[in-house]
Design a protein around this nucleic acid. Structure first.
Length: 959
RNA sequence: GCCGAAGUGGCGGAAUUGGCAGACGCGCUAGCCUCAGGAGCUAGUCCGGGUAACCGGGUGCAGGUUCAAGUCCUGUCUUCGGCACCA
């Protein structure tokens, strides 16, 4: 019985495509090129999740659609295969990560192939292949070999870095050290999250409140030598070039926010060398001399040690700066601390050092701080201001010190209130409705907005923006300030203390005693890759040092030209491999270059890039950074890697009803429960803990717009879909769906659920629904009752009747337009309408059936290929021309026009297409019901949109 | 707190430019077919009233612009996502 049986036809066509290499991409495009890329997955041990195929189906549809429209399509897939889970598995079981990774990759590959995606599998790559990470290491060498020329705003070879004469005069080693300081890859001490219990270094996201996310063990912060990449140098370009991209505005906003560019001024507050060295205020004579020197010599590039340099975005509030704050880590803290304050300052700084960044911000409700005992001079009005230390100022942002303007900055205001510091308003909010003006002017409220200057001597009356310009110019003229730009973006911490990652192609020089000299030597490009050594065991060795410290000596200590070196033992983060994989897909087997320049020029940029929003910032920012650097170094030809970006929404689990019960089992309404409380749900009023219980749908009913318990209708239930998770037990396995409904049904359902970008709850009933549609298509074209597969007897070689032709062409038009704008859900709806219509026809013209099969083929390719073959074609439809529609066939002779009276729909009249406004109005007036409604009324106005609608505006006739 | 997205039937969602709200699917109801059905077919299904024609209401809430608002404007509430002392 040839019913629609996906478990037979799907493997059949997958084999066909593989054997015929149907989707092999030519190295050079034959037609117009289209590069469609999925964010490649990390092959986890859990296998594919129904979230993966959502984006992959969307890109697959686009690719199949565009191939039929004549484009040359690049559509590759690969594996982001380095990652912590495989390493942790190795620690537990001793299985080498490469073995685990290959096993997981096989599962992922099988699952993706089972869904019939049209990837060119000959381009498959994994970031863990030595042939791949050879080039990841090569890119690192490019970064290492680059410095950033601020003037030109681009990266240049380190050999072109100008060496100051005073450095040159110190000899070769000094020059090398100077270069090392300016490379875009550099080393620095940075704190890591070391968890002794787990024996591993954790990422910031894995540490919550000083406790490891996994296991709940304490985590300590230790400084460790780390590799950093100078992404901040590219801050401006990363921000500005967002404008050139066809990305969702929300993602651009997220990136802009992350880069966090702000403009303002740097200003020096004089503290002096003499008086302040022991606390107290700077000597007036010394200050005078400093002022004179500054107006002569100007503003020095790096701060001198007689000033505290601050950064502010509001130089216009300088007259309101009543104190200063240094971060606890600020280098001047020790010198500015007076003997009397020394104990208090020391205690405060030690306490701050113990807290992680997270703790500092978490406990941010109350401001803490300590006075240094020193005073500085406000350069606007020459008044002395106290210098404080507080951890609400971050050492890592700006200059690590601020001027505090409590009247106009919320944080400064809170601090000033806590410690009783003076509050001087210098901005009049005027009529600004957000604050009470009198309170602001009395120093009893904070006003962070813009307004008119007061208490600012000669600047009074200026608007905030004018003031900024004027005072900045004034500061520059006096040599005490300059314009400045800052970023929230920090340099990229690029090393990990892991085994399962790309080794750095770097060797550290050892002296005769086997100690590090601090000088480095790179592994030359032609000797790459630096492969990972074989480790005997993977267990933790109890120190935060990288696991590769345990590597065999012949790997760890190479001897070159008779000199002993130690290899770098940190490895690169997982981001490294995913930063450039889109380039390697173009030319995956090239051993001479990362990508052939001609091929790169032809295929780049990626035209459509689809993936989850979780990569909105980091992956996309890092990849853009590398791409720009490669552009500067002449490796790639475009300034940006990804043209159009689409984020697929998350697929949630099935909708669940949750009721809440107290410890004694009594039900409580969801209205009185705080579900987001820490440590589980609790009653809003009493903070009593309650338990969430899943309630089956047959125990609940709808009351108004909420669900309630059937047996206790005053108990409201929570109705929502949750993120799929193992813990919740609501994960849907694609294997099971394919087994029961078929891959085409899974693909179609994921597209039919709703817009690609939206978060959507899963529903097995919905899968069953689209499977029903595929069954109907099958029955429309085949004879299900025959013994052998044969055409339905209603399918005939005849011309379509005019109504049939109209439906056909409307469907072609609609589906084409919907696919062009990635509205997959509505394109499916249109094919359903087609099927509903033609199923009712006793005669189904073969040409119409063939066209539908072609329209359906990007979405449900296996079914389409099978029907195409049955309709008498002997090769794949993958490159059949896409059906075109005839506008003539769609045109109807008559249109139904709604007629409104005072904006309310009262009748519909059928008129000839293209009828003029006057005639349409006549036709509307001729309608019996309209005539009745207009009788006795004065028609004030008639609005006619020919072919669309008529509206009579009436009022009762006078008299 | 700040930034972003979204609120439309019992449910997922349509409505491309301001012009017939609810396409399509699920679910539900009734009927047909069947030995049987988690199969198929037909009809109905926004809410209230009415046998019906039809009438009234309706896109989170409150206003506004317009002949006309799901769509535009102002305010507000809720949910989700992100950032979180960035001076």
């Amino acid at each position: 019985m040839p019913r629609y049986n996906p478990s037979v036809i799907e493997p059949k066509w997958q084999r066909y495509w593989a054997e015929h290499k149907t989707f092999a991409t030519p190295q050079m495009p034959a037609g117009q090129k289209l590069y469609v890329l999925d964010m490649f997955p990390y092959p986890s041990g859990d296998g594919l999740h129904v979230g993966h195929p959502e984006g992959y189906t969307a890109t697959d549809i686009i690719c199949r659609f565009e191939r039929m429209r004549g484009r040359s399509v690049m559509h590759p897939m690969g594996w982001d295969a380095f990652g912590l889970p495989a390493e942790q598995h190795a620690k537990k079981t001793g299985t080498p990560p490469r073995v685990t990774t290959e096993k997981n990759t096989s599962t992922f590959r099988r699952q993706l192939q089972m869904l019939g995606f049209s990837y060119d599998w000959d381009r498959e790559l994994a970031t863990t292949d030595p042939g791949y990470f050879r080039w990841t290491q090569w890119i690192f060498l490019q970064i290492f070999d680059t410095w950033f020329d601020r003037q030109a705003q681009r990266g240049r070879p380190i050999s072109e870095l100008p060496i100051p004469p005073e450095v040159k005069s110190q000899g070769e080693d000094a020059v090398r050290r100077y270069q090392d300081q300016h490379r875009l890859a550099y080393q620095s001490e940075a704190p890591v999250n070391w968890c002794p219990a787990l024996g591993t270094v954790l990422a910031n996201e894995e540490v919550i409140g000083g406790i490891s996310e996994r296991g709940g063990h304490p985590v300590v912060r230790l400084p460790l030598r780390q590799w950093m990449l100078r992404i901040t140098a590219y801050g401006d370009r990363l921000e500005e070039d967002l404008e050139t991209l066809e990305w969702p505005d929300s993602i651009k906003a997220l990136q802009r926010n992350w880069i966090g560019r702000s403009t303002g001024a740097e200003v020096d507050f004089f503290v002096g060398r003499e008086g302040t060295a022991q606390g107290g205020r700077p000597a007036p004579a010394e200050f005078k001399a400093w002022r004179a020197a500054r107006s002569e010599g100007g503003f020095p590039t790096t701060a001198t040690d007689d000033v505290v340099r601050i950064y502010t975005t509001r130089p216009d509030t300088l007259f309101g700066a009543t104190y200063m704050v240094l971060a606890p880590e600020h280098p001047l803290v020790a010198r500015l601390t007076s003997p009397e304050q020394s104990a208090a300052v020391k205690a405060y700084c030690e306490q701050a050092a113990r807290k992680s960044d997270l703790d500092r911000t978490d406990l941010a409700k109350d401001k803490t701080g300590v006075f240094t005992g020193s005073l500085a001079v406000n350069p606007a009005n020459q008044r002395p201001v106290p210098v404080w230390i507080a951890d609400y100022v971050l050492a890592s942002y700006g200059t690590g010190a601020i001027m505090a303007v409590p009247a106009h900055d919320t944080r400064d205001y809170e601090f000033a209130v806590t410690f009783g510091l003076p509050i001087v308003p210098v901005v009049d909010p005027g009529s600004d409705a957000t604050v009470n003006r009198d309170d602001v002017l009395a120093g009893k409220a904070v006003f962070p907005g813009e307004g008119t200057a007061i208490h600012s001597s000669a600047f009074d009356g200026l608007s905030t923006s004018d003031f900024k310009t004027k005072i900045t110019a004034d500061l520059v003229a006096r040599g005490v300030g300059r314009e400045a730009v800052n970023y929230k973006l920090r340099d990229w911490l690029f090393s990990r203390q892991h085994f399962w990652g790309e080794p750095f192609p770097v060797l550290h020089e050892l002296d005769a005693d086997g100690k590090l000299t601090g000088l480095m030597r790179i592994v030359p490009a032609e000797e790459l890759p630096v492969d990972l050594p074989e480790l005997k065991k993977f267990e933790s060795h109890g120190t935060p040092d990288p696991p590769l410290e345990q590597a065999p000596p012949d790997w760890l200590y190479p001897i070159i030209d008779g000199r002993r070196y130690k290899r770098e033992t940190n490895t690169m983060p997982q981001w490294a491999g995913s930063c450039w994989y889109y380039l390697r897909f173009l030319d995956p087997k090239n051993e001479q270059a990362l990508v052939d320049p001609q091929i790169e020029k032809t295929w780049m940029p990626v035209d459509i890039y689809i993936g989850g929003a979780e990569h909105a910032v980091l992956h996309l920012l890092y990849a853009r950074f590398w791409h720009k650097l490669l552009f500067d170094r002449g490796v790639v030809s475009t300034i940006e890697p990804f043209g159009k970006l689409v984020n697929q929404g998350m697929i949630l689990g099935e909708v669940e009803l949750t009721g809440y019960q107290k410890a004694d089992g009594a039900w409580v309404s969801v209205a009185v429960v705080d579900g987001a409380a820490e440590g589980g749900p609790e009653l809003k009023a009493s903070r009593e803990k309650v338990t969430g219980v899943r309630v089956p749908f047959d125990k609940a009913e709808k009351a108004g717009d909420v669900f309630v318990l059937k047996e206790k209708p005053d108990v409201r239930l929570d109705s929502r879909a949750y993120k799929m998770s193992k813990a919740r037990g609501n994960v849907v396995n694609p294997d099971a769906v394919v087994k029961e409904y078929g891959a085409d049904a899974l693909r179609l359902y994921e597209m039919f659920m709703g817009p690609l970008e939206a978060a959507k709850p899963w529903s097995m009933e919905g899968v069953n629904g689209v499977r029903g549609f595929l069954d109907r298509v099958w029955r429309m074209i085949t004879n299900e009752r025959a013994e052998q597969l044969e055409l339905n007897s209603a399918v005939k070689d005849v011309e379509p009747a005019s109504e049939q032709n109209r439906v056909l062409h409307k469907t072609i038009q609609g589906v084409t337009q919907d696919l062009e704008r990635m509205a997959f859900n509505t394109s499916i709806a249109k094919m359903m309408e087609f099927t509903n219509f033609f199923t009712k026809c006793d005669v189904r013209p073969r040409a119409a059936m063939e066209k539908l099969v072609l329209l359906l083929s990007p979405l449900a390719p296996h079914l389409a290929e099978e029907l195409w073959q049955l309709l008498g074609h002997d090769k794949s439809l993958a490159y059949e021309p896409w059906p075109t529609f005839d506008p003539e066939a769609i045109r109807e002779d008559n249109v139904e026009v709604p007629v409104q009276v005072n904006g309310k729909l009262r009748a519909r009249v059928t008129v000839a297409l293209g009828l003029g406004a006057a005639e349409t109005e006549q036709a509307a007036r001729a309608d019996a019901r309209i005539a009745e409604l207009l009788a006795g009324q004065t028609v004030v106005k008639v609005v006619v949109v020919p072919g669309r609608m008529v509206n009579f505006v009436v009022k009762p006739a006078a008299g």
